[in-house]
Lab assay of single mutants.
Amino acid sequence: MAAAAAAGAGPEMVRGQVFDVGPRYTNLSYIGEGAYGMVCSAYDNVNKVRVAIKKISPFEHQTYCQRTLREIKILLRFRHENIIGINDIIRAPTIEQMKDVYIVQDLMETDLYKLLKTQHLSNDHICYFLYQILRGLKYIHSANVLHRDLKPSNLLLNTTCDLKICDFGLARVADPDHDHTGFLTEYVATRWYRAPEIMLNSKGYTKSIDIWSVGCILAEMLSNRPIFPGKHYLDQLNHILGILGSPSQEDLNCIINLKARNYLLSLPHKNKVPWNRLFPNADSKALDLLDKMLTFNPHKRIEVEQALAHPYLEQYYDPSDEPIAEAPFKFDMELDDLPKEKLKELIFEETARFQPGYRS
Rank of each mutant, 00 (worst) to 15 (best):
238 N>T: 13
169 G>Y: 01
207 K>Q: 13
216 C>T: 08
10 G>L: 14
281 N>K: 13
242 G>A: 09
98 M>P: 08
9 A>G: 11
304 V>M: 12
153 S>Y: 09
166 C>H: 05
221 M>R: 10
333 M>S: 09
138 K>P: 09
279 F>E: 05
123 N>Y: 15
295 T>I: 03
49 V>T: 06
100 D>W: 00
92 A>Q: 00
342 K>Q: 11
355 Q>R: 06
177 D>V: 14
186 E>M: 02
175 D>F: 07
2 A>L: 00
353 R>T: 06
280 P>H: 15
70 R>Y: 02
68 T>Q: 03
82 N>Q: 13
175 D>V: 15
225 R>Y: 01
125 H>T: 09
184 L>K: 08
107 L>Q: 14
302 I>F: 15
308 L>Y: 05
32 G>K: 00
156 L>P: 03
322 E>P: 00
359 R>H: 11
62 Q>C: 13
20 D>I: 11
8 G>S: 11
208 S>P: 07
244 L>N: 01
307 A>N: 00
291 D>T: 02
108 M>A: 09
332 D>C: 01
220 E>P: 09
338 L>T: 09
107 L>G: 09
160 T>Q: 07
155 L>Q: 15
172 R>P: 06
161 C>Y: 13
215 G>M: 07
204 G>M: 11
200 L>Q: 14
326 E>V: 14
110 T>M: 10
193 Y>K: 11
348 F>S: 12
279 F>H: 00
215 G>N: 09
313 L>T: 08
162 D>G: 04
255 I>Q: 11
261 R>H: 07
25 Y>S: 04
212 W>P: 11
357 G>V: 15
125 H>S: 13
99 K>E: 09
328 P>E: 04
68 T>L: 04
68 T>E: 06
76 L>W: 00
138 K>A: 09
214 V>F: 08
139 Y>T: 05
343 L>A: 13
195 A>Q: 07
220 E>K: 14
248 S>V: 07
358 Y>T: 11
319 P>L: 11
337 D>W: 01
328 P>Y: 07
318 D>M: 10
288 D>G: 03
273 V>W: 01
164 K>N: 15
349 E>A: 00
162 D>F: 03
307 A>S: 14
41 S>C: 12
267 L>V: 05
205 Y>S: 13
191 R>A: 09
192 W>E: 12
316 Y>H: 01
311 P>W: 00
324 I>F: 14
180 H>S: 11
77 R>I: 02
60 E>V: 14
213 S>F: 05
102 Y>M: 08
62 Q>P: 12
268 P>R: 03
79 R>K: 13
122 S>A: 04
95 I>D: 01
178 H>I: 12
171 A>H: 09
301 R>N: 03
340 K>E: 13
202 S>D: 09
327 A>R: 04
293 M>V: 01
209 I>G: 09
146 L>K: 06
271 N>R: 12
72 I>E: 08
308 L>I: 04
168 F>S: 11
344 K>D: 11
307 A>Y: 00
30 Y>S: 08
219 A>G: 11
288 D>C: 01
208 S>I: 02
353 R>L: 12
131 Y>E: 05
136 G>S: 04
135 R>H: 10
60 E>Y: 00
259 K>C: 05
248 S>W: 07
356 P>G: 08
67 R>V: 05
249 Q>R: 07
278 L>V: 03
284 S>W: 08
166 C>L: 07
332 D>S: 06
45 N>Q: 09
119 Q>I: 05
295 T>A: 08
28 L>S: 09
75 L>M: 15
18 V>E: 09
358 Y>A: 09
261 R>E: 11
85 G>N: 03
102 Y>Q: 08
44 D>L: 09
234 L>H: 11
55 K>F: 06
328 P>D: 09
357 G>W: 01
117 K>R: 13
110 T>D: 07
27 N>G: 12
251 D>K: 04
322 E>Y: 01
261 R>F: 08
197 E>R: 13
354 F>E: 14
306 Q>S: 03
33 E>D: 14
289 L>D: 04
97 Q>L: 15
310 H>A: 03
106 D>Q: 03
275 W>L: 15
328 P>L: 13
309 A>N: 01
177 D>Q: 10
46 V>C: 07
235 D>Y: 15
147 H>G: 11
13 M>I: 15
251 D>L: 08
102 Y>F: 14
